[in-house]
Amino acid sequence: MNDAELYQFRLYIVGDTPSGQKARDNFKKIQEYLHPDEVRLEVVDVLEHPERAEMDRIIAVPTLVRVAPSPAFKIIGDLSDSAHLRHFFAIPDNSPTTSGNPKHADIR
């Protein structure tokens, strides 16, 4: 599988906070739905890499940036608003998050 087909995400957090942990946990659910092998996640701590937050103009945390496929976009918050996210990633309400092929999902 080449990189172009991968889902690449970047999660910005500040230090070791509960909200950062919550965002990671919630992201796992999305990842499972999108197919774990096709999803790459990079976690960036703004305290360690402020210059990277500068590049992506991050002001709120947690912020999840979809780096690929383009266009890039940001999801602000700890990803706990599952109804919103299900809609956003086109995850059916009754879908068990571990199954299904998301290829049809239009992630924009």
Binding site: I58, A60, G77, D78, H84
Partner: peptide, 18 residues
């Protein structure tokens, strides 16, 4: 061109850190 949506709780810690 960069859309942003809100999904859950957040704070402006990144701004502060920057």
């Amino acid at each position: 061109g960069h859309e942003a949506i809100e999904a859950g709780e957040f704070d402006l810690g990144a701004l502060l850190a920057r």
